[in-house]
Amino acid sequence: MDKLIISPAPHIHGGDSVSKNMTGVIIALVPALLVGLYFFGLGALVVTLTAVASCIFFEYLIQKFMLKGSSTVMDGSAALTGLLLALNLPSNIPVWMVVIGSLVAIGIGKMSFGGLGNNPFNPALIGRVFLLISFPVEMTTWPRPVPFSAAYLDAETAPTTLAMIKGHFGEIPSTLDLFIGNMGGSLGEISAVAILIGLVYLLVKKIITWHIPVSILATVFIFTGILNLVNPELYASPVVHLFSGGLMLGAVFMATDYVTSPMNPRGMLVYGIGIGIITVVIRTFGAYPEGVSFAILIMNAFTPLINTYIKPKRFGERVKI
């Protein structure tokens, strides 16, 4: 080296990178994915592979022919979007719908705003909500969990716990079943324990902070707890609410998406409480049995506002002289 390099301080870097964070989240999703594969078998595998592959493919195409920037396909964010989308879908959904969902997630949800870092809404949720509104029947018929099932489109269907609560029918599964995921639902959302393992991994690796998941879960627990105390006949217990539907998956993996969540601890708490309240309101008073996706998207829209008005705790803020 004949010439020395001159640059402003600092001269060392921690070695963190975008792809490391994305890979970390994907690793944290593995337990939830495994539970999905166990209970839904072939269908889960097909849906997951299709979503991941088509998300990467669409990102590559758009990057190459429309944005013409440097390639970001390999940083893992497209694969993560695909995986999250798959985990939010029922495992008996036709492949072509998955492809459409991926196109909407990547094309409209992410790349139309300029790629990673610029999207105001969580791309995977955009894809999911698009499918939910366009194909309500397919998106709300969930297969019954059968270990290592080889069924795909022809899988036997079962209602979700939340649909049972909403329609006041059927027998709500035991808390243990809710916890390990032995119930109907989207392929990645059923097992609370698998998602909690993922949460621990994310926290240990310092990929996310505790603020968002804890504030969402605590808000839902307290709010549904109050409702349950008021009228236990009408409103389900907070434990059932916590472990059913997409709440766990949403709170741990969807709401904590870097790009669309607030950027300081105080803002994160406000955001989490907002998601919790909207979720419970939709679940108990709205037309849909489940509202986590909508709640996250609505609070995504408030994120810039939260960032503008809620500032982090400054050094020396409380001291008065």
Binding site: V18, N21, G117, N118, T209, V259, M263, N264, P312
Partner: peptide
């Protein structure tokens, strides 16, 4: 690269 708004700098 683009800012991914991970908020690590704030933390």
């Amino acid at each position: 690269k683009n800012c991914i708004r991970c908020a690590k700098c704030v933390t």
